[in-house]
């Protein structure tokens, strides 16, 4: 049962905590930016900001994985 729960956690959240925590942080940052920027500006550039945050999360997860190997 414990093995099945661990498999389910890996299935939904992945093998590391970097990606779920990073995606959460990226969403939080995007919500803050949406509140801070004028509405029209957010509508126009918000998607690109989110894409950059997501790429940063990917880069961080790769960096941690690479460190783990070296």
């Amino acid at each position: 049962m414990r093995a099945l729960l661990a498999s389910l956690r890996r299935l939904i959240l992945g093998e590391t905590w970097t990606i779920p925590l990073g995606v959460g942080a990226a969403l939080g940052l995007a919500v803050v930016m949406r509140a801070w920027l004028p509405h029209a500006t957010w509508q126009a550039v918000g998607g690109f900001c989110l894409a950059i945050f997501v790429l940063a999360v990917l880069a961080l997860s790769l960096r941690r994985a690479h460190r783990g190997h070296s």
């Binding site: 919500v31 509508q43 918000g46 989110l50 997501v54 990917l58």
Partner: peptide
């Protein structure tokens, strides 16, 4: 999946993508 995920998440936050679905 990452492209779809970014697209939907941004739309959920009120973003209007340039070129709509072609984004």
């Amino acid at each position: 999946l990452a492209a779809f995920g970014t697209f939907f998440t941004a739309e959920g936050l009120g973003v209007e993508w340039p070129l709509a679905d072609l984004a």
